[in-house]
Every structure is written in C-alpha cells, then in structure tokens.
C-alpha cells in the first residue's frame, strides 16, 4: 500500500507531465492550422495541373518522353516521407509497415524527415539521400527531392519511383499511402478531388494543338508536375504530422488528468481512514 506521501508525490509529477503535454498540444494545434491551410490551398492548382498532365500525355502522339517510359522493374526507388520528431502516435509506424513490403535488396530509399532516415538505417536498407523539410515545406525543398528522383530514373539506375507518405484527410484521420511517381501516369489509389475520372479522360478524344510542339510542352509540364507532386506530398505529410501530434498529445493530457483524479480519490480515502483511526484512538484513550 502506497503511503499518503507517495501518492502526493505521484500526483504532483503527473500534474507536471500533463502541463508539458498540454503545452505541446497547443503548439501542435497552432502549427496544424497553418499546415492544414497550406495543404488545402494547393489543391485546386494540383487538380488543374493533373488534368492537363493527363490530357497531354494520353493523346496519341508520335513521340515518347523518357519520363513516361514504362520499363520492367528490376530496381525501384521509394521516397519515404515521415516526420522529423516523434510523439505523433502511430503515424510513422503505419508508414514503415507499408515500406516493409518492399524487398530490401532491390529497393533504394530517398527519405524526407529524420524518422524516415533512422528507420532506413535501422533496418539496414539502402539509403540514397536524405532530405530535410521544415515546418512549412518550401517549394525548393520539394524540387530537390523531385530532381534527384528524376535523375535516378533517367539514368536508368531505377526503373520505378514510388512515394510512401501520409495523406491528410482531416484532423483525426491520416492515411498512409503508396503512390506511383515515375514513370508518370495516372494517380492511382487516391482520388484527386475535382479531377475527372480516368475513364472520362481516356474517352475524351478531342484533338489538341500543342504550341510550339508536343515535346516542348510535355517536357515543361512534366518537370513542373513532378515538383508540385512532391510539394503536395510534403504539405500533406506536415499537416498529418501536426494533426497526429495534437491528437496524441491531447490523449496524453486527458489520461494524465484522469489519473490525477484517481490518485486524488485514493489519497483522500487514505487520509480519511487515517483521521478516522486517529479519532478512534483518541476516543479509546479517553475511555480507559
């Protein structure tokens, strides 16, 4: 049986923990709002670019861009986007579970975020490059990642590039996802809201004029498209991370408060018992 002093000490220590987790919850909440806004703002841009990309690359044209080339996959690269810091619930472990499906021999990794790099190193997989990204992902950071992946693909060091990252659905739901990045094709496995379904695009056979020529337009378009794709992934990852952290910190705070309640009850019972016993002792002493 714990003494009253022990219980008091535990209450105080849990109170301190609750204070810390509450502070972290507040910080995450304010960062979350910013990150969510950014992730939502970029959506219309991506929708339109995606539509143009589909339109440009599904036309029957007498020219093949190297970024569209589908090859037999001997080696693949995975861009793994995780958080820099922990304390965000199951966010990262959900991602790593997805990654575990890839054969470590034929897969190389490009990581963004410290936890991703640590995971790749810990499980002795092959790491090509590790990129940092800040609380508000900047376009330059996305471009660096996209450029590296594109080079690997064009130099034929890998035959396929995929992205494993978290998609931000809402504050409570974040979805770990695997997306095909290169060769450029359909975005499968995730609906691009507002964009017409692939069947509608495939059915649309209107002749489109490319000015000055298809090669120039598609080259320019694909470069942009890849950069924006990664940018969107990073923004989503950040929004997910902050949301997950806020929710898990809120959970921790709630648990701490509940625990303090239990301990206080126990402490009061103990105190009451002691007072009752003391009273009985006094009464007993008088009776003698």
């Amino acid at each position: 049986m714990a003494s009253a002093r022990d219980i008091r000490r535990r209450i105080r220590s849990i109170g301190n923990t609750a204070q810390i987790t509450r502070a972290m919850q507040m910080v995450a909440a304010s960062k979350m709002r910013k990150a969510q806004e950014a992730a939502i703002q970029v959506r219309p841009f991506v929708q339109l670019l995606y539509r143009i990309q589909r339109k440009a690359t599904t036309r029957p044209i007498d020219f093949k861009h190297p970024l569209l080339e589908v090859r037999a996959v001997r080696k693949r690269a995975v861009i793994l986007v995780a958080s820099d810091k922990g304390l965000c619930g199951a966010l990262n472990s959900n991602l790593f579970r997805l990654v575990a499906e890839y054969d470590p021999q034929s897969t190389v990794f490009i990581t963004a975020g410290r936890k991703a790099a640590q995971f790749v190193a810990r499980t002795r997989r092959q790491l090509v490059a590790d990129f940092p990204y800040g609380d508000t992902p900047r376009f330059a950071e996305s471009r660096a990642i996209a450029a590296l992946a594109r080079d690997l693909f064009l130099k034929r060091e890998v035959d396929e590039v995929r992205v494993v990252a978290t998609r931000f659905v809402n504050t409570l739901v974040q979805q770990p996802l695997m997306l095909e990045f290169l060769p450029v094709g359909d975005i499968r496995g995730v609906e691009v809201p507002g964009a017409p379904p692939p069947e509608a695009l495939a059915a649309d056979r209107t002749e489109v004029l490319f000015e000055p020529n298809a090669e120039d337009i598609i080259g320019y378009l694909l470069g942009h498209y890849l950069n924006i794709f990664i940018h969107l992934v990073l923004l989503n990852a950040k929004a997910s991370e902050q949301s997950a952290r806020m929710v898990s910190m809120k959970g921790a705070t709630d648990n701490a408060v509940e625990m303090i309640g239990h301990l206080t009850l126990e402490y009061n019972k103990l105190r009451q018992g002691r007072i009752t016993q003391e009273l009985l002792e006094i009464a007993g002493g008088q009776a003698e």
């Binding site: 209107t206 002749e207 489109v208 490319f210 000015e211 337009i217």
Partner: peptide, 19 residues
C-alpha cells in the same frame, strides 16, 4: 503572353496547350 507571342482567345477556340 504565350511562348510564341501574344495570342487572343475568343470563345470556340480550337483546343490548344501552350506555355
């Protein structure tokens, strides 16, 4: 301001993709 010079677009223009 297209890459090949100014272009004016009116309704019912032919489909074009340009920079």
């Amino acid at each position: 301001p297209a890459i090949e010079g100014q272009i004016g677009i009116l309704p019912r223009h032919v489909p074009v993709l340009t920079r």
